[in-house]
Design a protein around this nucleic acid. Sequence first.
DNA 1: TCTGGGGTCCTAGGACCC
DNA 2: TCTGGGGTCCTAGGACCC
Length: 418
Amino acid sequence: MFALVDCNSCYASCEQIFRPELRGKPVVVLSNNDGCIVARSKEAKLLGIDDLQPFFKIEPILKQHNVAIFSSNYALYGDISHRVMTTLKTFSPEVEVYSIDEMFLNVAGMPWNLKEYGQQIKQTLWQDIRMPVCVGVGPSKTLSKLANRAAKSITQCNGVCVLDQPHKWQWLQKRMPVTQVWGVGKRLAKRLQRFNIDTVYDLAQANTKVLRREVNVNLERTINELNGIACYPLEEQPSAKKQIYCTRSFGEKLSELSLIKQAVAVYASRASQKLRAQKSVVQSIQVFMHTSPHQDNYVSRSVVCQLPYPTNDSREIVALALQGVAAIYQPGNRYIKAGVGLLDVCDRRFNQFDLFNTGQSAHSEKLMQLLDKTNARHGRNAVFLGAEGVAQKWAMRQQYKSPAYTTRWGDLPVITMR
DNA sequence: TCTGGGGTCCTAGGACCC
DNA sequence: TCTGGGGTCCTAGGACCC
């Protein structure tokens, strides 16, 4: 049996931890660059504010209803997430951190009543961290995801839903549209309509062989999972990424090559850092940039560049990314976004040398280790490449950012005793 | 003044080569 | 009735997730 624990309106709840006066009030959190709504408290949802709406379009409505607005504060959310995950690990020896606000727990063979166990998890996280969560339990990951949705939307569940019998999950499946299934998006749902599949139940009862042939093997697995047959195992160790991207919108539109280069240097550097964190090397990278797709004369270009040998050295990756930028840059355009992708990522241990290239030097390996160690100890940007620039005029907008309450000495909350 | 996220993986289609 | 290949690389864009 799997339990999926999912934080309710995660980012909004994080903000409410240090602003308790905002509990029970409408709160929204914006994406990077204050672009879209990415988290809404229950009260904000009730005002009819949709997920991923552009902020500037609904700003007047938010102000009118006195909604508390926050820019994304990932230092805070990352730290709170870490606390939640640490607490959850005490509830099961086998867990998978699925996203910043979700964790799968293996609860097979637990001697306790699973409904009560779920309530205990929920209460502990509220008492220790003030994070509200919902718990879904089922014999497969897909069913535990479905159970979690029920726990969130059906009041009688009181935040915990256990699907341990076929009649229970079938009852739910008949009442849910197929888009509620993990891995089925808008597009696939439309394709499934051709097979007369509208509800989750229709999909669960569909012919696996036909859909495997018509769609793919993952859909066959999903169907089995919906019938209580686990096909996706718990992944305690996250598998290494095959591609690593770092992309950002700029705070303002950029035309000047030197500024775009600075931004791309930062993205390439950050991607390299992620690459080293998973102990991999890369031999080809992609650089892209584009203007606003919401305006006329949309321009988007990308290029793939090869490194001479597999490496994880920020200096080489950044230098190549900058060549890429120069190759696709066209003067006169006002770019809104750029990004760097590391494409053929592979394990450092399988790094192959050839006759003419000795590969990354031991000196370079050592320097990168030192760089990562220093930044881990003294903050992410304690040491960085000169190409990344200091002024960062293109940095994203974050007009409504809360303090880094838990990760910066100067931002520690102060409690006043009366 | 002007505003529209980010990450990963996959696929379609075209260019080019043999 | 009508029939002309297959592989690789590159780029753009889509699908799905959070």
